[in-house]
Design a protein around this nucleic acid. Sequence first.
DNA 1: GCACAAAAGGTGATCGTTCACTATCCGGCG
DNA 2: CGCCGGATAGTGAACGATCACCTTTTGTGC
Lengths: 341, 341
Amino acid sequence: MQDTRAGAGTIGRKRVTIMQVAERAGVSHQTVSRYLRFNGGLKAATVEKVEAAIRELDYRPDLIARSMRTRRTNRIAIVLPELTYFLPSPFRGAAAAAHEAGYQVDVVSLEGDETRRRERVLTLMDSQRVEAVLSFTPLGNMFPLQSDPTLPMLVMGEYDDKMRSTGAFADGTFATEIIQHLADLGHRRFLHVAGSPDWMSARNRRTVYLETLERLGLESYGVVGGQWTVRSGYEAARDLPANSGVTAIFAANDSIAFGVVRGLQDRGFSVPQDISVVGWDNEEFARYLSPTLTTVELNLELMGRQAMQQLIARVENREAPVFEGVMGRLIPRGSSGPAPR
Amino acid sequence: MQDTRAGAGTIGRKRVTIMQVAERAGVSHQTVSRYLRFNGGLKAATVEKVEAAIRELDYRPDLIARSMRTRRTNRIAIVLPELTYFLPSPFRGAAAAAHEAGYQVDVVSLEGDETRRRERVLTLMDSQRVEAVLSFTPLGNMFPLQSDPTLPMLVMGEYDDKMRSTGAFADGTFATEIIQHLADLGHRRFLHVAGSPDWMSARNRRTVYLETLERLGLESYGVVGGQWTVRSGYEAARDLPANSGVTAIFAANDSIAFGVVRGLQDRGFSVPQDISVVGWDNEEFARYLSPTLTTVELNLELMGRQAMQQLIARVENREAPVFEGVMGRLIPRGSSGPAPR
DNA sequence: GCACAAAAGGTGATCGTTCACTATCCGGCG
DNA sequence: CGCCGGATAGTGAACGATCACCTTTTGTGC
């Protein structure tokens, strides 16, 4: 790579414009523009001249000028939660997918109370700086007034307009697998420690949990919890009555599961001899717990990618791409065992 | 979710321009521009007219057009690592600080091998789309040719051009505190399980560890590890000779510490009766381990903010702001106890 | 060789703002 | 009274690309 770069944007070499490229190539600026935008209809010889000029001048289109004229920003906002459960993997997947599709990514994190957050999102959507919004945090009833034709928007884990959600479907599959796994081990009476109900993924795991028990003729002792924290799991275990008859606990993620295991152990229960515990996410620590934690591994990065691809398809008025690839798998480990007799 | 599509990239209502504001206010467009850019020199009466017009028309400046003219993007890139240790807190702090200063944030995640990553950063810096780069991942020897006046750039945890680092100083303080804490408990012979040496923060903790032992006349049995993982800690504990004489282990983060504790326990050692262990980060699980984990809590969000503020000061050719606020604290818990006799 | 349509390329206007000048207002001073 | 100069405000030209429309070249059938 030759090194003739000067401070970009700042003082230094002056920009190479489309005009200079045109002059050098011996064509008009519009021809160069056509080349850049793939408008086609250029003779091979012309294309070559233009390419040569671009190469020689090290020309790069000015994206701001382009945006100015086209009124398109090629920019998508990703909204992050302030404090809660946040996974970098789907975020990276989404950002990568956006870049691959030629979009830049704006990151906005939501702070403050409901009112301030709402305000922030509305300002964002109205700012004309982004073409779509992908949110990693639930926005609640932020848009009761769906009157405005606002921006395309997708909330990770929420249902999309076709009632198929990115991730939610996968959730269903694996929650069912977990229950099946435990039922095969002879368990009949279950407890679910749920995640924050703000999250569709939490609500969904809960729903599928209940439906699956119903379908298999098994019994739910109840659903407790409500936060994605170790503490939430610990307290759930601590508060479980000794005579509940529960022999298996499905925790909505690994942190909760960890808390559950610790709570049970502190009360003198053995895992899995007395009670089996299953988590969700396959975080690295899961295999180092004692006992090692049965969990579900999801391809989170892939999910982030697909959410973004779906969103971009909507921005461009295209058909949403078909999803493929394995979304995850159940990983049986030491924390789930045969039900006690 | 409801379908909130507008036309691809197009905006519903048509833009209000500075011209319309000027007309309504009965002044020239340039006067409105002056008002917007705080160029001053406007009579109070004029200011009022302009403000009224802006309010009535719900005018908002077109930032793209502004960028087009000023050649400034008000945009800073944040570079994220692909796979490794990634903390959302400092990221959010940095993003928030940028927004408060009127900058947008672009997120770029680095994938692929060294060559591809290098290429990606160079392209980014040359793209004229951002004014500065804040990296959350070490970039290695990516810029041996420091000849160019490239973009202002700051790597979290690395030293800046004044040899003062954001975070590194704090690291030093707390590594010293950890050793002091253990020395007070009677420990004399230590082991350090380090993080990935790519990271300045890992190198720094290691350095301060060694220096502090030296200064206090204590002994290091060695430095092992080299990854920010539970596994790395587990293996360090597994491989520690029984006769090493080590009674205290300083792990570079909580995940490593967790692995160390598990590894020791699997070998039949008691923590802290036989060996004390100290971690770093105060992750939520630290207080639920058995024993609970002594660790250091850092104000990571604050560190992210300050890194960004420092970077922005450089972009704007201002003096770097003075840092304030408490950066963290040592949290003694169950995993550190008196040295065995 | 000619008519004519399609393909290829050119011209000037335009996006919304700020920059660099220029013009006007108005009080004070010689 | 006229002139000066600072304080305000206005005018037209950029910024660098694309769009809409127009002109020239090329190819084809007879």
